[in-house]
Amino acid sequence: MQKVCLTVNGREVSAEIDERTLLLEFVRDVAGLTGTHNGCLEARCGCCVVEVDGDVVKSCNVLAVQVDGAEITTIEGLAPQRLAPVDQITTQSLAGVYRPVEAVRGTPEDLHPVQAAFHRCHAVQCGFCTPGMVMVLKDYLEENPEPTRDDVRRAIAGNLCRCTGYQHIVDAAMEAAAEMRGERVPDRPTHGSTDGA
């Protein structure tokens, strides 16, 4: 057993854990934040992506002991309102949107622009891949504010989605990028019809 202390979404969480505990298991079972999903457990699907000291990692392929002392940000930590507990699992809760919202925009109190864009563009279907997608896109768009659709596809190469065919996810990423650059985004979703856009 090993004592590990992590700061998860600003909250200090420490526990005596088995050395084999994955960061994913620590986040879900010790910190109790189940927004981070366990998909494949072999670093392929990207559903378990969290930030460790500002860098995204696949938490199923990192031991909790490897990141002892680090700051972890999970999907629940992207905007304050999502620290509230989920009563009912809905499409919105899976996107990290806990209140019913009409044509939401990203604001610091409300939603991260990527989450807002996912909601607007219907980039969530079953929602299982969504936490990982949002975490990777947030990290990517912060570093690359003006991506092309092709860049976005490469950025989420390590995230599998079996529902959407990725089109709406790429739409959402493009809208989120625009919003993060400070541009106005439409109230209604604008679906890019081709990938050449």
Partner: peptide, 9 residues
């Protein structure tokens, strides 16, 4: 190579 999260580790 690999993907963004894997390249960070």
């Amino acid at each position: 190579l690999a993907d963004r999260p894997v390249r960070n580790r």
